[in-house]
Design a protein around this nucleic acid. Structure first.
Lengths: 148, 148
DNA sequence: AATTATACGCAACTAAGTTGCATTTGTCAA
DNA sequence: TTGACAAATGCAACTTAGTTGCGTATAATT
């Protein structure tokens, strides 16, 4: 069986990111590819400070640019903006409908698959004549470890 | 049938607010009563700027004090903190479980009664061993008027 | 390789929210 | 009712998230 090297995996990733950016009609720039790559290698919602930490220090990408890139990614539907009552936004790749469990003690964020919202949305559309475009659902409390 | 005057209604309200504040072990101060009254006379979630507008101009209550009062009210469970992806918080009286429909065009906020979350929370508690303390659910889209 | 719209970096700004500290005020007990 | 003390307020200064304007650089297109 033919193996592919780490190098090749990274190239694939690089190529995927470039393609994704191109597909939403944004120019493929090093800053954008690096940002999207960061999200691909992160499965939890991150805030901008966390992103700039790496992007600015290691790649010299400006804070402002990171904000602008993220806004364009959100606008194009690549990212989803989240707010966990922290006074700042978090972002995650916009794939797979799910919600979040946020531990108020240790800050751990867990994903929960959605089982109820699509039905609820239909009811809302009918009853309130409201056209739902997106939603956000978060649960705050204590994770298994922090209940002790 | 005996009528009560506007004056008496306001006194009742004043008294209710004072009682509520006392009951959560906070000192009854003019600033706190005025803040709580503002919430009682407002059925939609408001941001701090909106509050200070009245409290500062008409009653000379400082911006900082408003922030501090609100934080203490949230801590004591009188208010619920909300975030509608605006880069600032909103607050509402913490009574009656409900969610929000937020119109992305005109900004109108509508309340939706909860029908699905309590059940969902039970499932989460069981499956993820997560102790849910609170949650937030918002729907973004277009209200009836703005769909045209 | 030249053109051009778009993206980037830098500096400055805005707006939300917080902190420290001196003064005032609500509460409670004498 | 008054005096004492903890708690609340006002003011100034600060922090942090996010934005804007503008000159320069660069990706896409011919």
């Amino acid at each position: 069986m033919k193996q592919i090297s780490i190098r090749q995996v990274q190239d694939l990733k690089q190529h995927d990111c470039e393609k994704e950016i191109q597909e939403v009609n944004l120019r493929v720039t090093p800053a954008r590819v690096a940002t999207l790559k960061l999200f691909e290698s992160h499965d939890k919602p991150v805030d901008v400070l966390h992103l700039t930490d790496h992007l600015q220090k290691d790649l010299g990408i400006d804070r402002v640019t990171v904000f602008r890139i993220i806004n364009s990614f959100v606008e194009k539907g690549l990212l989803k903006k989240l707010e966990f009552q922290e006074g700042k936004a978090r972002y995650e790749l916009n794939k797979g409908e799910h919600h979040h469990l946020i531990c108020q003690n240790c800050g751990k964020i867990e994903d929960v698959k959605d089982t109820v919202i699509p039905d609820f949305e239909k009811k809302i559309a009918k009853k309130y004549k409201f056209l739902v475009k997106s939603h956000s659902l978060e649960f705050y409390g204590f994770c298994n470890d922090c209940q002790k």
